[in-house]
Write a protein that binds this DNA or RNA. Structure first.
Length: 600
DNA sequence: TAAGGTAGGGGCGATTGATC
DNA sequence: GATCAATCGCCCCTACCTTA
């Protein structure tokens, strides 16, 4: 305004320089837990220096998953250097810290490997194994600077997922060289020496894959012995054999033993192939002391898996197949109920939000909050909840029926006893979940759940609404006094479902003309009946009005007669008080008549 | 934009087999 | 022998992606 030129005191940096500065201020920290939050990372590193921002990059192979490494941008380069030189431990695990550019470089490599593997995945049902093998191949080829097609490399894999797979594997291991030869026979362009050389190159067992056969289990593992040795850290390393896929059971035992007692049976051979990707064998060969122990193992970030924190702590589902554990205790039941109530309402989470299932969360809640010994797997908890839910639902019905009787002078305890008796009569079994019912009965989530069930039943049973109710339909029936107090948290229909519904209705309209005609006829009849009713009511109303007016006239006539009588009374011979009364009444009447008469 | 396909996930009944 | 935890398979629902 005063004519003086103003400008920045400090010159703006060029974009490239900004990025460069950002790079030196940003460090990558790993391994972090899969469900780690931005705030957690920020507060953790905030203890050491001022944090500008935190990023949680996704995995290169699966964008739904956190890659296990967080990028922390500090306010100054000095801060970044200071933290980089620190030896930080999070959740008992020493964090590996590196500059962002190093992390980016590794990530670019990984992306390339994943891309290669995607193109080279075979068409058979063992895509995962192949992809994993190909990734390994890609890496080694890259290291050697001599890219080779994956199919040219030696691949000792089990080719059948059946029970013989272990046998196949051991055979394959024993006859490695001969297999190599066989492979080479298939591909005449290669010779045995070349193959062996390639196997030797692959001393680093690198794998990166995803367990897709079971939707719950994502497994990204990367065993990088070469790197580990170089770093010299003391994290877990699985012994890796010259053949990339073969790990001895002793080595695995050694790895798993750090997290709990591992039982090994005597059967089976000494080698396992692609354990992590196809390895149901693991269940048979190794037994953790508890399923949760196993879960704990998979929660540990180890070098078995640089990004193993992505693996859900759910492993126990098949760990002790066929072994029935002890009965559920009241505490366990209550904790399951509590876990269910505390878990998210929306059980179907979008993929990009969280790959964990609601039962995984319930499982974690259960084991995090237990103050007793329990090794239940998520499947056990789920099954138990199903039992609890069913029984409590039935009991609610019984209790509602007892309530509906409106018995006077009956305490709540008596009602519960009666409901229990009714339950026993109806279901030939005693109700064993009173403790759960007490926990659940007033909880909004439970009430919403019950209501949802009820509406579902009503809608599905609407065509036969007059049909006799089943005990269960009575259970959740209109007498459920709690039903009105809930907030409707039911999810709306999805687009597709809504369209289906619309289409169905449209189709019904188009196709069923006859039924529409019948409906119209019925409606006309109904209308006629309604009109008749209305006429009847109107007639009654008019009659009633007439009757009222007649009564009113009668009353007026009687009143007039009375007034005339009062006016004609002679008060001369009456006692003074009586005379006074009549005079007052006569005056009143005169006033009334005078008021209504036109004045002159 | 609608339709079709696929994947993820839950519910539920039947079955199995260990425990009571 | 009864009970009940664990498992399995089927069905249904929803969201997302691809294709016409």
């Amino acid at each position: 305004e005063d004519g003086k030129k103003i400008g920045r005191t400090t010159k703006l940096l060029k974009p490239g320089e900004v990025i460069e500065q950002l790079d030196v201020r940003t460090i990558a920290a790993s391994p972090l837990e899969c469900d780690v939050k931005l705030e957690d990372v920020e507060s953790f590193f905030g203890q050491f220096a001022k944090v500008n921002s935190v990023r949680l990059p996704r995995h290169v192979a699966d964008k739904r998953l956190f890659c296990g490494t967080s990028l922390i941008e500090f306010s100054t380069e000095d801060d970044a250097v200071k933290v980089l030189n620190e030896s930080l431990v999070d959740a008992g695990i020493e964090l590996e810290l590196k500059l962002e550019k190093d992390f980016d470089a590794e990530r670019a490599k990984q992306a390339e490997v994943v891309e290669n593997s995607c193109f080279q995945v075979g068409s058979n049902h063992k895509n995962i194994s192949n992809a994993e093998a190909n990734m390994s191949t890609g890496d080694s080829a890259e290291e050697n600077g001599s890219p080779e097609p994956a199919s040219d490399n030696v691949d000792v894999q089990k080719t059948d997922g059946g029970p013989d797979s272990t046998e196949n594997v051991s055979e394959a291991a024993e006859n490695k060289v001969s297999n190599d030869t066989k492979d080479d026979e298939d591909d005449p362009g290669e010779n045995v020496e070349e193959s062996v050389e390639k196997v030797d190159v692959k001393t680093g067992f690198e794998s990166e894959g995803k367990e897709t056969e079971d939707g719950d289990k994502y497994l990204d593992s990367s065993i990088q012995t070469g790197e580990n040795k170089a770093k010299g850290n003391e994290r877990l390393t699985a012994a890796v054999y010259k053949n990339k896929d073969i790990v001895s059971r002793e080595d695995l035992k050694g790895v798993f033993q750090k997290f709990g007692t591992v039982k090994m049976d005597s059967q089976g051979d000494a080698y396992y192939t692609n354990l992590f990707y196809e390895g149901s064998n693991l269940d048979d060969q190794f037994e953790m002391e508890s399923s949760y122990q196993a879960g704990q193992y998979f929660n540990q970030p180890t070098d078995l898996s640089v990004e193993s924190s992505q693996i859900p702590a759910q492993m126990g589902s098949t760990m002790k197949k066929g072994l029935r554990s002890h009965n559920f205790t009241t505490e366990e039941d209550n904790l399951i109920v509590s876990a269910w109530l505390n878990s998210s309402l929306d059980v179907v989470l979008p993929n990009e939000q969280n790959s964990k299932t609601s039962w995984q969360r319930i499982y974690e809640y259960f084991h995090r909050n237990k103050n007793f010994t329990s090794h239940r797997s998520s499947i056990s908890l789920k099954a138990r909840w199903a039992t609890i839910k069913l029984a409590v639902n039935k009991f609610i019905g019984c209790y509602a029926q007892i309530e509906a009787r409106h018995q006077s002078s009956v305490s709540e305890q008596d009602k519960i006893l009666q409901a229990m008796l009714m339950y026993r009569e109806m279901h030939q079994a005693s109700f064993q979940f009173e403790h759960c019912w007490n926990e659940l009965r007033y909880q909004p989530k439970w009430l919403a759940f019950v209501q949802k069930k009820k509406t579902k039943k009503l809608s599905s049973a609407s065509p036969c609404a007059s049909s006799p109710c089943t005990p269960d339909s009575i259970n959740l029936g209109e007498t459920d006094a709690q039903g009105d107090a809930f907030v409707d948290l039911e999810r709306p229909l999805g687009i597709k479902a809504e369209n289906e519904r619309f289409k169905r209705h449209r189709n019904i309209e188009q196709v069923d003309d006859n039924s529409i005609a019948v409906l119209i006829k019925e409606m006309k009849v109904e209308k006629k009946q309604m009109n008749e009713k209305m006429e009847l009511l109107e007639r009654r109303y008019v009659q009633e009005q007439k009757r009222l007016s007649i009564m009113q006239m009668q009353f007026q006539m009687e009143q007039q007669k009375e007034e005339e009588r009062i006016m004609s009374v002679d008060t001369t011979d009456m006692p003074p008080l009586q005379a006074e009364y009549y005079k007052c009444r006569q005056k009143e009447i005169l006033d009334k008549v005078g008021g209504s008469m036109p004045r002159e």
